[in-house]
Computed example of a mutant assay.
Amino acid sequence: MDDLEDQGLPLTALAIAAGRAVETSRPDGLVADPFALALVEAARSHVDFPTSWPADPTAASPLQRPLLLASIYIAVRTRFIDDFLRSGPPTPQTVLLGAGLDTRAYRLPWAGGSRVFEIDHANVLEFKAGVLGRLSAEPRCELSTVATDLSRPWREPLLSAGFDPHQPTSWILEGLLPYLDAAAQLSVLKEVAALSAPGSRAVIERAVPLPKTDEVEAKLRDFSLQTGLSMSEVLARADPPDPADLLTSAGWLCSGYSVQELCAAYNRALSLDAPGLPAPSQEPASGQSRGGFVTALR
């Protein structure tokens, strides 16, 4: 099999799967994903992603340390969204926007008749289906995949796949908004609101707004030079819409959760050194780049 980049798959999707594999290997794991390791191994990436929690994480190499730290955040995020889906009355439909290598359709218990829609690029969905097919894995719900680009209009492909806007829906926006520019984020959120029948709900990972300071502008210029992205493209992500504001104005009931709150709830520190929690008044440095989460009920 060709390596990940040759397949055109995003490294971020693989990194998240690797994070779930690491968490699954932990004796105190917040998430059990029996498919994550196979997805990482099948990609044969040139990046040496960790897939298990080391006996001494503080001795990890300089490359592995940030990846292990990322796995802690991925574990907390994944468990929070899993718990959201398991709480409250189930909706007949669930839509994962930017599903990536997510395996919730295969590993979570779903109520009878539940339908799950996964939206992402065709190559991502095809890669995942191929790996899971070779494992003889079967979804635990009625699964429909929708191959489309979420930075472009996606309502019609979703409707064509059988989505019913008159039925309550659970929406999952995990690791999506930070990768869209502000205009595309606004478009996605407005579409979610427009397609949601009463009784719908959503869990959304926020994009982080960038403060307009000289220091931040200088960092953005450096980032632009390093990545080859134009400054206008970088700045297009600088002032994202607030999902809570938008959905509240549309009549939804919203709640916000910081990364620090979720770390406390799941007794995890964003640190390789200390098993205990960080001080309640101090947000971990790695958490400062995160925007937290919004849950919403219509």
Results as ranks from 00 to 15, higher is better:
D2Y: 03
D3Y: 11
G8C: 05
T12A: 13
A13T: 10
A15L: 09
A15H: 02
A17T: 03
E23G: 09
S25F: 09
P27Q: 07
V31L: 11
A32T: 15
D33K: 06
A36T: 03
A38D: 12
L39H: 12
L39G: 12
A42W: 04
A42R: 09
A42N: 05
R44A: 15
S45H: 11
S45R: 13
S45K: 10
S52Q: 13
A55N: 03
D56R: 13
S61A: 14
P62G: 12
L67W: 12
Y73K: 11
A75I: 09
R79D: 00
D83H: 10
F84C: 03
L85E: 04
S87G: 14
P89Y: 00
T91R: 14
Q93D: 01
L97N: 01
A99E: 07
G100L: 12
R104Q: 06
Y106K: 01
R107D: 03
A111R: 15
R115Y: 00
E118A: 08
A122C: 10
V124P: 08
K128F: 07
K128L: 07
G130A: 12
V131T: 08
V131D: 02
V131S: 06
L132I: 09
R134N: 13
L135Y: 02
E142R: 14
L143F: 08
S144Y: 13
S144K: 15
A147D: 05
T148A: 11
R152A: 15
R152S: 09
P153Y: 05
E156N: 07
P157T: 02
S160K: 13
F163G: 06
W171D: 01
I172K: 06
L173R: 02
L176N: 09
Y179R: 08
L180H: 02
A184L: 01
L186V: 00
E191H: 08
V203C: 13
V208H: 09
P209C: 01
L210N: 10
D214N: 06
E215F: 13
A218P: 06
S224L: 07
S230Q: 15
S232Y: 05
L235K: 13
R237P: 04
P241D: 02
D242Y: 06
D245Y: 00
L247Y: 00
S249I: 00
Y257Q: 06
A264C: 03
N267D: 15
N267T: 10
R268T: 03
R268G: 00
A274W: 00
G276H: 12
P280S: 08
E283P: 09
Q288E: 14
F293Q: 02
L297K: 04
L297F: 14
